[in-house]
Design a protein around this nucleic acid. Structure first.
Lengths: 369, 369
DNA sequence: CTGAAAGCGCTAACAC
DNA sequence: GTGTTAGCGCTTTCAG
């Protein structure tokens, strides 16, 4: 299995069971064209200093042999293009592709390659995603959902930009000002005259949703979720904000899907029929809440106002159109790429000043609140 | 060589920083730890035959130097993992991430890497995307929107699986049975009692939408679009299907966005107020059509039925919920990956039997039709 | 214009 | 246990 035939030539020998015939190398092409390897290089890379006729002959030989330069050999000898890993928990939630799209676009502009890992479906974690990406990339941008330190350790000196979580020892991080978001939303609802407010948080994976509990802010320690464990960072911000302004806020949790949020909202409305203002963890889940409100025969926003979070295009297509705490996702993508760029070029020091960004949501008023 | 910006390593010419200009190699680590390179290899790769104490010393040295094995050298010496390029026109349309998610998941299961290129935003074409991907990957899966031959030429012998377009000389292809889809939808509408049918096609980029024209099927040659140029393959199928069963079908075109479709639908309803059944190019555009119908005070489906195409989750969140010609996108992703797998292992011959799949939509009945 | 050297950084074999 | 020897396939020098 060392040398063996390199035939591969005019399409013959593609036997049924074999597969994996040895790939043609630059030497095969050189031999076939009767030239040296450098001439092949020159021909393949459109370099000057080669007679057109020779070039054509070489290219033809290459074509016939199905020759493709090894990207490894090439990368080894020329400093290769940077490739950045993009760790995404779930491409199925429109939030992430909107972000990814922006990252891919800007990375491409810089000549970077983007290796995408959608780690959610296999039930993997962010750290596992980084582990998978690590041998292949020069840097990582990702929604890791925690464990930034561990991920950075895997990457060594290579930059890691984490989103929506404390940067920890990561080279850089982008977080969102949920306190500001919560205050904005809650104030808006209050100004509208809503009195019985609720926040639907995302349940941690594995949380028991059997009987979604609920708390009044100011009761249990913020950070403690109704059922078990901790609330999301967003949930904590809402609880904090409500407590600070003396508002009562019912917090319930739901798995991260529209269908689940619909169910949870339905139950919420049964438990607390007077609920007249709801903020939801994200827009997709808010869509589910809207459905539940419609199911229960309530008018939105007249009977109950709804505010989502994310600002994805979906919101505009719903009925009523969703008022939401919007993030400019192209902006977030840009911030991540620029941060990484600074880290890669050395104009920014890992963990140094300017490597932790705090972005704000802004309230986009549409119909639902 | 025009650009010499390669330098993957931590940027050159960083004024303020300390040493660390050139990336550490295995020799640096070996020297620092006072061992040979082979020992470093053994330590880094958790190979047997090394004293734990030595291993620890080496790993510490590696950590201190920020050593990361070169993926190129590594790939060169061991046959590296296959990496497949995924060319996607627009991650912003939920259809594509749903597909991409499936591809990434299944590719990851096989140990492949996925290099994603969302080529739409930069105004690039599918071929350009392949060109960009080519040096980095062993195969490509993509929605190229035509030019499969050219793309395959760029890739040489490396497999290319194209979707939603004729395979041409591509190694493999997946197409959709739009004739079946059109017939299914049209029949359903007819059975509902709809008489004045319309189909909203996607406009080719650059098509003049100033005054969307309309044709009656059976008029102009199928394949000719109302305004200029050709219809999409879907449009042609609808025109053909309508003509075959003697139904009148108004075809209008709209750019590929919900907002544009909303406008176009509005105008359609002014031009042909009696329209009582509409099929739309995709679900996102159908959402826009639904909005326009609501704007005009029409009830759906009572006054006018609407059928979308794609089957993305968005449809369930709309009001009314969207009846649609659905594709199982996880299935499509699986088909693409399995096709590629066959091509890569040699169990399938490029362009040979089994390399061109034809998948069918099925009508998912919800509320809108 | 073309060819012949010399590595890029790493790991598989064998030595020791 | 550890070090030494070969290359992997390609592009850079630098000669011819």
């Amino acid at each position: 299995m060392t040398t063996s035939s390199g035939e591969t030539s005019s399409g013959l020998g593609q036997g049924a069971s074999t597969g994996a015939s040895k790939r043609a190398t630059i030497l095969d092409v050189a031999a076939a064209a009767g030239v040296s390897r450098q001439t092949v290089t020159r021909a393949m890379n459109a370099m000057p200093g080669i007679r057109p006729e020779t070039r054509a002959r070489v290219q033809e030989a290459a074509r016939q042999l199905g020759y493709t330069p090894s990207r490894f050999a090439k990368g080894l000898v020329q400093g290769a293009r940077t490739s950045v890993g993009l760790a995404i928990p779930d491409l199925t939630n429109p939030y992430y592709p909107a972000f990814a799209s922006s990252v891919v676009e800007l990375a491409t502009q810089r000549g970077w390659h983007v290796v995408m890992d959608d780690y959610g479906h296999g039930g993997a974690t962010g750290v596992e995603s980084v582990q998978h990406l690590a041998p292949q990339v020069d840097a990582v941008i990702g929604y890791l959902g925690g464990a930034a330190d561990e991920a950075q350790a895997i990457l060594g000196r290579r930059p890691l930009v984490v989103l929506d979580q404390p940067a920890g020892s990561a080279s850089g991080g982008i977080t969102f000002d949920y306190d500001h978001a919560a205050q904005t939303a809650l104030e808006h609802l209050q100004a509208r005259g809503c009195r019985q407010l609720a926040y639907i948080d995302r349940a941690w994976a594995g949380a028991d949703l059997g009987a979604p509990g609920s708390v009044r802010a100011g009761g249990p320690t913020p950070g403690t979720d109704p059922v078990r464990g901790v609330m999301t960072v967003r949930g904590q911000a809402f609880a904090r904000s409500a407590a600070a302004s003396g508002m009562a806020l019912t917090v319930v949790v739901s798995p991260e899907s529209a269908a689940a949020a619909r169910q949870v909202t339905r139950r919420l409305l049964e438990d607390r029929p007077g609920t007249d203002g709801i903020v939801v963890f994200n827009d997709v889940m808010a869509a589910g809440a809207l459905k539940a409100l419609a199911d229960s025969g309530r008018a939105v926003p007249a009977d109950c106002a709804v505010i989502g979070m994310d600002g994805i295009p979906l919101g505009e297509l719903l009925t009523p159109e969703l008022t939401t705490l919007a993030l400019d996702l192209r902006e977030v993508g840009r911030a991540a790429v620029e941060l990484l760029d600074g880290l890669l070029t050395g104009s920014l020091d890992p963990g140094g000043p300017g490597t932790e960004l705090l972005l704000r949501h802004h309230l986009v008023l549409r119909q639902s609140a």
